[in-house]
Design a binder for these strands. Structure first.
Length: 456
DNA sequence: GCATGATCATGC
DNA sequence: GCATGATCATGC
């Protein structure tokens, strides 16, 4: 066992993954012992070698088994891959991910399910780092650590690629192989210095090749890793426009457009049934396809979707995070989560439900809650705290739970209502009883007012 | 499995 | 059409 054997359990994928994640935002230099620093130049394989040796404590070997043979069902393979920064901002995969060498002889007897390829590459621990020209590989910043499992339609297309390559080899035509004839999995040249080799059924000797995930495929993997993306991609945009204005302007072309028209214009097809449909749509309208908006994350801006009924009344109240009864009981208003949440900057994206049930984009605007309204919310919170102290009255009727926490009639601004997976999703009250999880909500009427008061 | 934002369902 | 309890879809 290696000196790193204390750090993780090499039979557990979870344990290895957890240990691996600690390298995010670090550089190899942080882990490599002093005496091994500066001995080598930026040689290609070095990043991976150093990572295996000095961080994971693995002995370099030429075995064809995965790097962690005992982890999971088929083992876990460790791979590292570079990405590069694009001039227009954002990142892309720098190169293909080279996998195992193709053995032209033995592969002819393999089936996909029993293939050496699959046994080695079904589950990969992928370490993604930022390549920068002119700096030593020891200083490349590690950006992502992810488990890359070959599954779903990707797996099927890779299988078809694999079958295609193997067929060609069985026909003795390995020398004709090119990367372009397959989709995600390519047979790339490897060991170009070496002479072409001959093999069973060969029509003529063929250059050595390895399986690889194509660069474009690695790009798609990268897209899945990047969970946030900025709205503003270049600095020049910010020279004569504020960030807020740039965001608002993005929505201009969609004003009063029906949502399917918006999708059409954006060239996308979103799942209309998803509960986050409008949130996804709003993000795409801003030119962001990642799950999170970089600037909103950094500025702690809360984006909320509002759908107005024809009457102008929001279709729903606005929910916040479920609260912990004990926390509300013990905290002061100033340290409460709700006071934190409502002091944030909000970004509202408003859609209008029309009489014919079509939905159009109406407007978007930034908003902070005025102090008098925050005072009112404070009252609701304090009332909630008082009721929790006194013991919430819970009754059951028609199979439903009812309680005496502040309702929407008790305040023009906010109320308390359940917010859980279902009625079995409960939390403990300070007195030990259990109650359906609850959260604070902005009243529909209050949101209506906020939207109506906003002049554009 | 759970947290979260969002939405559904029902009674009055 | 509102008030309120309950639940869904997604992401991690």
């Amino acid at each position: 066992m290696s000196s790193k054997s204390q750090e993780y359990d090499d039979t557990s994928v979870d344990s290895i993954f957890k240990y691996a994640k600690k390298v995010i935002n670090h550089r190899l230099r942080d882990f490599v012992p002093e005496k091994f620093l500066g001995t080598k130049k930026g040689n290609k394989g070095n990043f991976g070698d150093y990572l295996e040796t000095y961080y994971f404590g693995l002995k370099k070997n030429n075995e064809s088994r995965p790097d962690f043979p005992n982890a999971g069902e088929k083992g876990l393979e460790l791979k590292s891959t570079p990405i590069k920064m694009l001039k227009r901002g954002g990142f892309s995969a720098k190169e293909r991910l080279v996998l195992n060498m193709i053995d032209y002889d033995s592969i002819q007897d393999e089936t996909w399910d029993e293939s050496h390829f699959l046994s080695k590459n079904e589950l990969i621990l992928l370490i993604t780092y930022l390549y920068e020209q002119g700096i030593p590989f020891l200083d490349f910043l590690i950006k992502y650590v992810s488990l890359m499992k070959l599954e779903g339609t990707d797996r099927e297309i890779v299988r078809q690629d694999w079958e295609h390559i193997v067929d060609k080899i069985r026909q003795g035509k390995a020398h004709e192989l090119s990367e372009g004839e397959t989709n995600y999995l390519g047979a790339c040249r490897k060991g170009w210095k070496e002479k072409p080799v001959t093999y069973k059924n060969a029509i003529e000797p063929a250059k050595k090749r390895a399986f690889s995930f194509k660069q474009k495929y690695m790009n798609s993997i990268l897209r899945r890793l990047e969970d946030s993306e900025p709205i503003v991609k270049t600095i020049s945009q910010l020279r004569d426009n504020t960030f807020d204005n740039i965001v608002l302007k993005r929505f201009n072309p969609f004003k009063n457009l029906e949502v399917s028209q918006i999708e059409k214009r954006l060239g996308i097809g979103l799942n209309k049934k998803a509960k986050n449909y409008y949130e996804m749509l709003a993000r795409r309208m801003m030119g962001v396809s990642a799950k999170k908006i970089d600037e909103f994350e950094k500025a702690d801006i809360t984006m909320k979707i509002i759908r107005l009924k024809p009457s102008g009344m929001p279709k729903e109240s606005m929910s916040f995070k479920a609260f912990d009864f004990k926390e509300v009981a013990e905290q002061s208003w100033d340290e409460s989560e709700f006071s934190d949440q409502i002091e944030k900057k909000f970004f509202f994206v408003v859609f209008q439900i029309n009489e014919d049930e079509s939905v159009t984009f109406k407007k978007s605007f930034f908003w902070t809650m005025p102090l008098p309204d925050r005072k009112e919310a404070e009252k609701v919170w304090k009332k909630t705290q008082k009721i929790i102290h006194e013991g919430v009255k819970i009754t059951r009727k028609d199979g439903k739970n009812f309680n005496n926490l502040p309702g929407s009639k008790d305040s023009p601004v906010a109320h308390v209502r359940p917010h859980g997976q279902d009625s079995r999703d409960v939390l403990k009250l300070p007195d030990g009883r259990k109650m359906t999880k609850q959260c604070f909500w902005f009243n529909q009427g209050y949101i209506k007012e906020v939207v109506a008061n906003h002049k554009d």
